[in-house]
Every structure is written in structure tokens, then in C-alpha cells.
Design a binder for these strands. Structure first.
Lengths: 155, 155
DNA sequence: CAAAAGTTTGGCATATTCTGCCATTCAGAG
DNA sequence: CTCTGAATGGCAGAATATGCCAAACTTTTG
């Protein structure tokens, strides 16, 4: 029903991806509309689920979540039962920010956030490797962040 | 300066990580304060950089960014010059959402967002592998998303 | 080409929220 | 117990959001 996004919609989305708390008045000025139709478009984008939600982005280092690591996981078996239980387990761990099942070299990729290497090691030893489905884990530890973006590219 | 976060600050951060556009009146009610001191705390958290920014989270599938892939990159050499140029290059690509230098098996890990496998393949062939520093790339393609969170764990 | 239907826009009135100020309350030190 | 500093709650004015309606625009239809 909301066929495609016109240039104004994309402009709105671009702005809101950079500043999710901009006032509707300023947003309207920025995209070249008056406040009324601008707010209406935002509401439609929300109702269509194109805008999923608004969130505050915290500085990881300042809230004790300074270390991001990527873990690649191999399962003992690949049946539905195993992956289902694995999914339930990782959803319970707040340290696991993202988790994907892959078809490549390994079975799952996780992005995990902790305070430091020691607390990551504890998480891996005490929780991650104790999930019954898990055969082994390989960890890539970033030394430096070259880029971290929250803006999806809009064609 | 802002020694530590007290329980009310953490409560505020937890709520704002779930709903970055909640009105200050509702936020105050939720954390058990009146609007005035609540707004004051939020402003202090912003000024301290603990709240970095507010963003709208879009549904990737609905804006033509439905495929997330992880790419592991090996460099030809590991000197500072090479990594610097690599960083500049990836920052220019909007498809690259995150990029970290690693000390493990590979030299860099990237999270890349595109429309579909075909457009990813084109991105890798036309852009990623053409960065002079890049020796080789291995890609893990997720089949399914088990978890995607935007809330950092707050101890 | 013209007329009609539907959609989008802009402006206005009202309700809600934000913002800054001040007196009061609370916690801790002397 | 008293003093001091910080945090809180309430209030008034300013800014913003919200809903409604007429006008302008776009698209379809005759």
C-alpha cells in the first residue's frame, strides 16, 4: 500500500537516523515541508513499520561495555532442535547484541559486548560454551574500531 | 566527574534505550521522579557523553537493506599506512556499518548491509577487494537472525 | 482537453510538553 | 544538633505537538 518511498520520505528517514529526537518543526524545515504534513509522514512511516523504534545510543565505554568481540560458533549438530535451543539461550544473555545463523564456514556468528577481556573470557567459559548445542567457539577480538554507523544506506 | 551512575540513572538509561522518544513526563513517572529533576538528569547524562545520541531504527528489510553479512579481511601488510587507508576507504562506503581491526586470525572484521546477495557480491567485487590494502576476503552469510538488540547491558 | 475524484499540503486552535527559576527537602559533615 | 551542599518538586512562560478543515495539486475518467 505505501508503494515506495518518495524523496521526501527518504530525506525524513535520513535525518531521523542521525537525530531521532529532532523536533517536528525542525524536521519539517529541513525537508522543506510545513509541520503538519511532515508529522503525518512520520506517523505513516511508523505505522508501516519502516521506522521500527527510537533508541538512545549510549557510549559503550562509559557504561562498562567497552569491549566488542565477534564469536564464531560451531554446533555439534545442525538440526532445528539444536538451533532453536541455541537461539533461546543467546536471547537470555544481555551481552549478546547480535546473533546470526550462517551457512558458511561456521554455524553462528555473535557480536558480544562486555567490560573487558577478562569478563568476556568468563562469559565464554561460564555461559557460551556451556550451551549444550555448542561444539566450539573461535573469537575475533577487535583492537580498534575503524567505523561504527547506525545509518542504513537508503537508495 | 559524574562519579558513578546511581540506580535512577541506570533506570533512565534502560528506558531510553528502549524508547528514545518517550516524553520527559512519562519518563519521570516511570523512574519515580517529577519531571524537573528527571530532565535535569537526562541533560547531565547527555553532557557527560554517556548518552551519545538518539536515532531512529529502521526496519532493514523495508528500506532495501535486508541482507547483513560479515566479512573477514586479510591485508597484504599490517603497517599503519595500510590500515589508515583501509579505514578511510570503508568510512566512505555507506554499506559498511561496522569495521574493526582484529588481532586474531584475520586483520579486520566488517558488518556490511546490502539489498541482497547479488548486490553484496557486486560490492565485494567492485569496491571491497579493490581497496589496495586488501589481500583476501572471507564472507559469512547469515541465513537467519536469532537476535538483534540495541540495548547495552547495564550492570 | 476538460472535469471529477482522490491525495497531499498549509494554517489555525487547542492540548500537551519543555524549559528555567526558586523555595523546600534531604543527606552528610562538623 | 546545626550547618552546608546537592537534589527535588512545583510553578509560569515559551515552544511544540496534535487534530481539523479548506485549498492546492495530481491522477483518473469522460
Amino acid at each position: 500500500m505505501p508503494g515506495t518511498l518518495d524523496p521526501i520520505d527518504r530525506h525524513i528517514l535520513r535525518v531521523l537516523q542521525r537525530d531521532g529526537r529532532i523536533s517536528n518543526v525542525d524536521l519539517a524545515r529541513e525537508v522543506g515541508l510545513s509541520p503538519s504534513p511532515c508529522l503525518r509522514r512520520v506517523r505513516l512511516l511508523e505505522e508501516a513499520g519502516i521506522i521500527d523504534r527510537y533508541v538512545a545510543v549510549l557510549d559503550p565505554a562509559k557504561v562498562g561495555a567497552g569491549l566488542t568481540v565477534f564469536a564464531r560458533v560451531w554446533f555439534k549438530t545442525q538440526d532445528a532442535e539444536v538451533t532453536l535451543r541455541f537461539g533461546e539461550a543467546v536471547r537470555r544473555f544481555p551481552e549478546v547484541m547480535e546473533c546470526y545463523l550462517t551457512t558458511g564456514e561456521c554455524d553462528a556468528v555473535l557480536r558480544i559486548v562486555t567490560t573487558d577481556l577478562h569478563s568476556y573470557w568468563r562469559f565464554q567459559a561460564d555461559h557460551l560454551t556451556r550451551i549444550p548445542s555448542v561444539l566450539s567457539v573461535k573469537t575475533d577480538v577487535p583492537m580498534e574500531t575503524l567505523k561504527r554507523s547506525y545509518e542504513l544506506p537508503l537508495r
